[in-house]
Structures are given as structure tokens and as C-alpha cells.
Nucleic acid binder design. Structure first.
Length: 342
DNA sequence: CTTAAGAACGGACCCACACCCTACC
DNA sequence: CCGGTAGGGTGTGGGTCCGTTCTTA
């Protein structure tokens, strides 16, 4: 059931309307396939400066916000939360914020990109330019609006931006307010958060730690809170409640994450995501992961070196014998001063 | 078409110990 | 505030176990 919707549910390119989209252009607020992206963003210098990000490889309906190194996957906030909250182990996957690219997507891309490129005929430069200008005008379609909040939340404008999203329990049409605090400036925009927020308070804070931009998303719901912390160097996850190490339940984290981006605004109406949707997302993710190369991240090369030289019994580490101890000293000397390999 | 048995697959777990990180003096 | 020390926690890889999925009869 889920597998059937695998490719057919991928979001169509906003330009050609036929090919599944693979990139999202923030400036145009448009989902594009690789050929259209190449055409449109190579049309003129202005268009070539549009920052683009990959579309989430799981739901294929939202801009990716993080890259999971362990899974080699670009994921949107919603899928990231769903997948990496599935179990404590997944929660420890190292993830990095998506870095927008400005070159042609096909140049950036994964191997599959080339195939699509060959299929596409080169078109007139004027036509592409016209298409580009058309897309620069924010369309009235729901997608454009739908991800407007996501663009704010993950704006690459300034790592020092602090954003507080405060929502009460009233419907979107009343008093939900987004406040952006930046250098004493304050921006307010109505109706960004749908009413399904249910008194959750979301904070996105950016700061620089050790030279790396660092972001924190704080999902607080009543007595429970979920702190999501990541930087461009590394990522850590902490759950500041009694549920440490326990899969967050659907009502707390998943609802918040779904609300966070995907359901930000859909025609001004909430779009609640059921547990079946969450399950489907995870299944789709696992299916795609099968086709990827699993790359294990080694944080400490020295530990790896020791592990490889360590005696084993049926795959398990065993106590060293006296001879092994001697070898260990040699190995220790050899690896002296090894710097952790991040 | 349905069912059951076997095969294949994948993820979790275990082990020892050097190193990292924090608290303390 | 800085340096040294102690102690607990973490990460590392290969084999094995076991549950799930797939294949075949």
C-alpha cells in the first residue's frame, strides 16, 4: 500500500508539471525537477543566485532541512523528526543542516541527475528566462504558502536570528503571531502557525559556537519539552524530560514536528497527520535507504585503530594476553596524537 | 489462490579497553 | 584562574542471535 505511492506521490515540478521535483528554490518558492532547474537558473545571473535545496528524499513534498550522514539522506524537518525519533539509536544519527547550493542542481547532484539531463532538450534562452521571471512572482498555489514558514525557520540570512513562534489554541485566523527578533527589529506576521499547535511553544535560536553556526529548536509542551540542537559541525539531541531514551509519543513530538513545517499553513486550515502517515513516512524512508550505501561515521580514528587490533573471540572483544599487551603498547605509541576524525 | 516451511536478510547485541569529558582539589 | 588527578561514560568492530520478510512448493 505504501510502496505503491512511492514514486507517484512525489511532488511534480512546478514548471513542467510532469516530472517529479528534486529541488526547491527558495526565491521562487517553487519545486523543480533537475532539467527545469538547470534551464531556469542558468537563464540569467539573477536567477543563478537563487539558493536551492534538495527536496526531502522521504516525503518528496518538502524542502530538506538536514542531511543525515549515517543514512546519506536529505530530510525535511517532519521526516527527520519522525524517522530519528523511531528509536534511540536513530536519534543518535549525526545530521547536518542543509547547505543551499547555487550551481546547477545537476552539477551538485547525485548520480541519477545525469539521466534526467540527457532526456531534456535545450530550449530557447528567452523562453527559459521568461519562465524564470514567471516563477519569481510568488504564486498563489498552496505550496508557495505552505513552506513560507519553513523558509523563515531555516533562513540562511543570519545565524543570530532568534525566532519565537507563539500560538494559542485559537484557529489560525485569529491571533497567532510569529515574532522575529533581530538586532532589536521585530517582525510580526499573522497566521503562520495553524491552531493544531495546542499551546506548544517553538523556539529557533541561532548562535555561533566554536565557529560553527548552531541552532536550537525547543519544543515545549506542558511539562514535557524536547530540545533539538544541531550545528554545522556536529549534532546532538537531548530530551529534557523523564522520557530520556524513550521514543517520544505521537502526541508530543510528532505532532509538533508535523505542525512545524508541513502543516504550517494549508489554505489556512490545519492538516493533521495521523500515525499511519507517520508510519508510511518511515516505511518509505526505509525502502529508500535500502538503495543507498551505508556509510558509518567514525568519530575517533584512534578508537577504531584500537578496536581493529583488539583480540576477539567470536567477534567479541576479549581480554588481552601478555603478548597482546606488548603489541598494545606498540600500537599505542604508533597512534599517539591521533586526532579524532570528524 | 491460500498456506506453510525454509531461506535470506537486517538490525541489535555483546565483549574489552583506550580515550574523552567532567568534577574536584 | 589554571593545572593536575580521578573516575565514569563513550566509542570501536566482528560474530552471533533472532525477528522479519521473501521465496518456493
Amino acid at each position: 500500500m505504501v510502496a505503491e505511492s512511492w514514486s507517484t506521490t512525489a511532488k511534480r515540478c512546478d514548471a513542467c508539471k510532469t516530472t517529479p521535483s528534486t529541488v526547491f528554490c527558495k526565491a521562487d518558492m517553487a519545486f523543480l525537477c533537475l532539467p527545469c532547474d538547470s534551464k531556469i537558473h542558468a537563464a540569467n545571473k539573477l536567477a543563478s543566485r537563487h539558493a536551492r535545496v534538495w527536496v526531502c528524499e522521504v516525503c518528496e513534498h518538502a524542502p530538506a532541512s538536514v542531511t543525515c550522514k549515517a543514512d546519506a539522506a536529505a530530510l525535511c524537518v517532519t521526516c527527520d523528526q519522525d524517522i530519528h525519533s523511531a528509536n534511540p539509536l536513530a536519534g543518535r544519527h549525526e545530521r547536518f543542516p542543509i547547505v543551499p547550493f547555487y550551481d546547477s542542481a545537476s552539477a551538485e547532484s547525485r548520480s541519477a541527475a545525469a539521466d534526467h539531463e540527457h532526456e531534456e532538450e535545450e530550449t530557447e534562452e528567452e523562453e527559459a528566462e521568461a519562465e524564470s521571471w514567471l516563477l519569481q512572482v510568488p504564486s498563489n498555489n498552496t505550496q508557495g504558502i505552505e513552506y513560507k514558514s519553513a523558509e523563515y525557520l531555516f533562513s540562511d540570512a543570519d545565524p543570530y536570528v532568534e525566532m519565537d513562534i507563539i500560538a494559542d489554541q485559537k484557529p489560525c485566523s485569529t491571533t497567532n503571531i510569529v515574532q522575529l527578533h533581530h538586532n532589536h527589529q521585530e517582525y510580526k506576521e499573522d497566521c503562520v502557525v495553524p491552531h493544531v499547535m495546542n499551546k506548544n511553544e517553538i523556539q529557533l535560536q541561532g548562535q555561533v559556537v566554536d565557529g560553527y553556526p548552531t541552532y536550537e529548536i525547543d519544543f515545549s509542551s506542558g511539562s514535557k519539552s524536547f530540545m533539538y540542537h544541531f550545528s554545522t559541525q556536529s549534532i546532538s539531541q537531548s530530551v529534557s524530560s523523564s522520557e530520556v531514551g524513550v521514543v517520544p509519543d505521537h502526541n508530543t513530538m510528532t505532532d509538533v514536528s508535523n505542525t512545524f513545517v508541513k502543516n504550517s499553513v494549508v489554505n489556512g486550515l490545519p492538516n493533521p497527520v495521523s500515525s499511519s502517515d507517520r508510519e508510511a513516512r518511515v516505511l518509505r524512508y526505509r525502502e529508500k535507504r535500502k538503495n543507498r550505501k551505508f556509510e558509518k561515521t567514525i568519530r575517533y580514528a584512534s578508537r577504531k585503530a584500537y578496536a581493529e587490533t583488539r583480540p576477539r573471540i567470536k567477534g567479541r572483544f576479549a581480554k588481552r594476553t601478555e603478548n597482546d599487551v606488548g603489541d598494545s603498547l606498540v600500537a599505542s605509541d604508533a597512534s599517539y596524537g591521533v586526532v579524532p576524525s570528524f
